[in-house]
Simulated scan of single mutants.
Amino acid sequence: MRGHAYEHVAAELREAILRGDYPPGTRLPKHADLAQRYDVSEIVIRKAVDDLKNRGLVETRGRGGTTVRERPPVRRISMDRYRADAGPQSVPQTSFTRDAGVTWSEYRLDKAYQWIIADSRLAALFAVDLGVRVLERRFVFYAKGLPSQMSRSCLLAADVEGTAVADPKNEPWPGGNIGQLGSLGVEVDEIAEETAVRMPDAEESAILNIGSGVPVFAITRRMLSRGRVVEVADPIVIPGDRAVRVDQIFL
Rank of each mutant, 00 (worst) to 15 (best):
D51L: 15
D51I: 13
L52E: 05
K53V: 11
R55Q: 14
V58H: 01
V58F: 05
E59D: 09
E59F: 04
T60K: 11
R61F: 08
R61L: 06
G62W: 02
R63D: 15
G64D: 01
T66Q: 10
T66W: 09
V68R: 14
V68T: 03
R69A: 06
R71L: 02
R71F: 06
P72F: 14
P73E: 11
P73R: 06
R76V: 12
R76E: 09
I77E: 06
S78F: 11
M79E: 06
M79H: 06
R81V: 05
R81T: 02
R81M: 08
Y82C: 07
R83C: 09
A86K: 08
G87D: 04
P88R: 15
Q89A: 06
P92I: 05
P92Q: 03
P92M: 08
Q93H: 12
T94N: 02
T94R: 02
T94V: 09
F96Y: 05
T97Y: 01
R98L: 10
D99A: 02
G101T: 00
G101A: 07
V102G: 00
V102K: 02
T103V: 05
T103N: 09
S105A: 13
S105F: 07
Y107M: 09
R108V: 06
R108F: 11
D110K: 15
D110L: 15
K111F: 14
K111R: 15
W115G: 11
W115F: 15
I116V: 14
I117T: 14
A118T: 01
D119K: 11
D119Y: 03
D119L: 04
A123L: 04
A124E: 11
A124W: 04
L125D: 01
F126Y: 01
F126M: 01
A127L: 03
D129C: 05
G131T: 11
V132P: 01
R133G: 06
R133C: 05
V134I: 13
L135H: 09
R137L: 12
R137T: 13
F139G: 00
F139T: 00
F141Q: 12
F141V: 12
F141W: 03
Y142A: 06
Y142E: 08
K144Y: 04
K144G: 04
L146W: 13
P147D: 00
S148H: 07
Q149T: 11
R152M: 15
R152Y: 15
S153P: 07
S153R: 11
S153E: 06
C154E: 00
C154F: 03
L155P: 00
L156P: 09
A158C: 08
A158H: 08
A158W: 00
V160F: 02
V160K: 00
G162C: 05
T163C: 05
A166R: 13
D167R: 15
D167Q: 12
P168K: 15
P168A: 14
P168Q: 14
K169H: 14
K169F: 11
E171V: 09
P172A: 10
P172W: 10
P172Y: 08
W173M: 04
G176E: 09
G176A: 02
N177V: 12
I178N: 02
G179H: 04
Q180A: 10
L181Y: 11
L181I: 13
L181E: 04
L181C: 10
G182L: 10
G185L: 12
G185I: 12
G185Y: 03
E187S: 13
E187W: 15
E187Q: 13
V188L: 05
D189I: 06
E190M: 10
E190I: 07
E190S: 10
I191K: 01
A192C: 10
A192S: 13
E194V: 15
E194C: 15
E194S: 13
